[in-house]
Computed example of a mutant assay.
Amino acid sequence: MNDVACALLVSSLLSVLLATIQISIDAKTNDLRSIITSSFVFYILIMMIGNIITTLLSANLIDNNLPAPGSTKTSFLLAGPRWVWYSIFGVFGFEAIIQKVNVTFFDQGVLTIHDWLTKAKKSATAASLEKIVILNFQDSQLLATRLKAQLDQESIHTFASMQLGFDQYEKIIASIKGNDKINHEEYLAYVLAEQSPRVVKAKIRAR
């Protein structure tokens, strides 16, 4: 594999890594499940395309200004494999370049690549935040089901009273009292799983 091909591969991998880190920071999550969405894939594609273009530009720039590999001329600049420098300048020089590059449609300026990237990042972050809510609900439901399967009715009420505090426990019971559609134990298990997931997991493991 030649230097340019290696650089393009590294640039693509760095694009995925940087996009993942960025959305993780913006969405304030470490759960990879919540980051991976269709909007996130679109964001990666835009970033990857931009990084590949700038990597090719940096390769051309470096090759035109430094001695060719194997040449008797030596250069103390950019020592080491050239593909490393191609990808470094390509990926980390991308932000400086995209501010000036326009996307045109029928010779009309539409959006800069920076605009596309910004919009894609916002969309990916919003999709991640939405998925976090869904995943948290699903995780709480699963945890509540496991808790209810291991504790009998009396034990669930006792555990809820101790963990939530008697006053909050009484308020919860009062709020669902008389509603035949709500199973008290299932509801208490869900509240416990949502508010104290670590304690519930420890309780399940201890059984």
Score class of each variant (00 low, 15 high):
Asp26Asn: 12
Asp26Ser: 10
Asp26Val: 01
Ala27Tyr: 06
Lys28Asp: 13
Lys28Ala: 11
Lys28Met: 09
Asp31His: 13
Asp31Ile: 12
Asp31Met: 10
Ser34Gly: 05
Ser34Cys: 08
Ile35Cys: 02
Ile35Pro: 02
Ile35Asn: 01
Ile35Phe: 02
Ile36Glu: 04
Ile36Asn: 06
Thr37Gln: 02
Thr37Gly: 00
Ser38Lys: 10
Ser39Gln: 15
Ser39Thr: 04
Phe40Pro: 00
Phe40Met: 01
Val41Cys: 12
Val41Thr: 12
Phe42Ser: 14
Tyr43Leu: 03
Tyr43Asn: 10
Ile44Leu: 02
Leu45Arg: 01
Ile46Gln: 11
Ile46Arg: 09
Met47Ile: 08
Met47Gly: 13
Met47Phe: 11
Ile49Asp: 03
Asn51Glu: 13
Ile52Ser: 06
Ile52Ala: 08
Ile53Leu: 12
Ile53Asp: 06
Ile53Thr: 11
Thr55Met: 03
Leu56Phe: 01
Leu56Ile: 02
Leu57Cys: 08
Ser58Asp: 04
Asn60Gln: 08
Ile62Asp: 01
Asn64Asp: 09
Asn65Thr: 15
Ala68Lys: 12
Ala68Gln: 11
Pro69Val: 11
Gly70Ile: 03
Gly70Pro: 07
Gly70Glu: 05
Ser71Leu: 02
Ser71His: 05
Lys73Trp: 06
Lys73Ile: 08
Thr74Phe: 06
Thr74Ala: 07
Thr74Leu: 07
Ser75Ile: 04
Leu78Glu: 05
Leu78Cys: 03
Leu78His: 04
Ala79Arg: 15
Ala79Pro: 11
Gly80Pro: 03
Pro81Ser: 03
Arg82Ile: 06
Trp83Cys: 09
Trp83Asp: 09
Val84Pro: 04
Trp85Pro: 09
Tyr86Met: 01
Ser87Phe: 07
Ser87Pro: 03
Phe89Val: 00
Phe89Asn: 01
Phe89Asp: 01
Phe89Gln: 00
Gly90His: 14
Gly93Ser: 13
Phe94Lys: 07
Phe94Gln: 10
Phe94Cys: 08
Glu95Tyr: 13
Ala96Tyr: 15
Ile98Asn: 10
Gln99Thr: 15
Lys100Ala: 14
Lys100Phe: 15
Val103Tyr: 13
Val103Gln: 01
Val103Gly: 00
